[in-house]
């Protein structure tokens, strides 16, 4: 099974096994005011709008053009572009030392900010 290994906040993390992934580089980010803070904005991927999710610890770092993103289909109908520090060569790496990243669970806790 294909497993993607990425660096996130200096740590090796394994992306969900079997989830279709694709490496992208940030071009233009559209901020989405009122969105939860981990959603840094949206980008377009082949004509569709995809949220850019940044799970790195605060303080928020500036996102430059060229920042690596992994496009992941978390579940049917939900695709996100995850901000990562770098992506490892899949073929050569062992997954043993990479902590699994439960993206679905991380996204499930997202709620639009309350009190509006």
């Amino acid at each position: 099974m294909d497993v993607w290994i990425v660096d996130l906040d200096g740590e090796r993390r394994a992306l969900p096994a079997g989830a279709p992934c694709e490496l992208l580089h940030l071009d233009y980010l559209t901020p989405v005011p009122t969105a939860p803070p981990v959603v840094r904005g949206v980008i377009q991927v082949r004509g569709q709008v995809v949220p850019v999710v940044d799970l790195r610890a605060p303080p928020e770092r500036a996102l430059h053009p060229g920042t690596p993103l992994v496009l992941i289909e978390v579940r049917e109908g939900l695709r996100v572009a995850l901000v990562v520090d770098r992506v490892h060569e899949r073929a050569e790496e062992s997954t043993a030392d990479a902590r699994p990243l439960d993206l679905a669970a991380a996204l499930a806790t997202l709620r639009p900010p309350g009190g509006r």
């Binding site: 559209t30 904005g41 949206v42 377009q44 709008v49």
Partner: peptide, 27 residues
């Protein structure tokens, strides 16, 4: 018109998004 997807569609402020000629998303 494009949808914002399940993660953001609950935000009341937006009805959707569109994509400009330069490939930028516009809300």
């Amino acid at each position: 018109v494009k949808g914002l997807g399940p993660l953001l569609s609950s935000l009341p402020l937006y009805a959707g998004a569109t994509i400009s000629g330069a490939g930028k998303v516009q809300l």
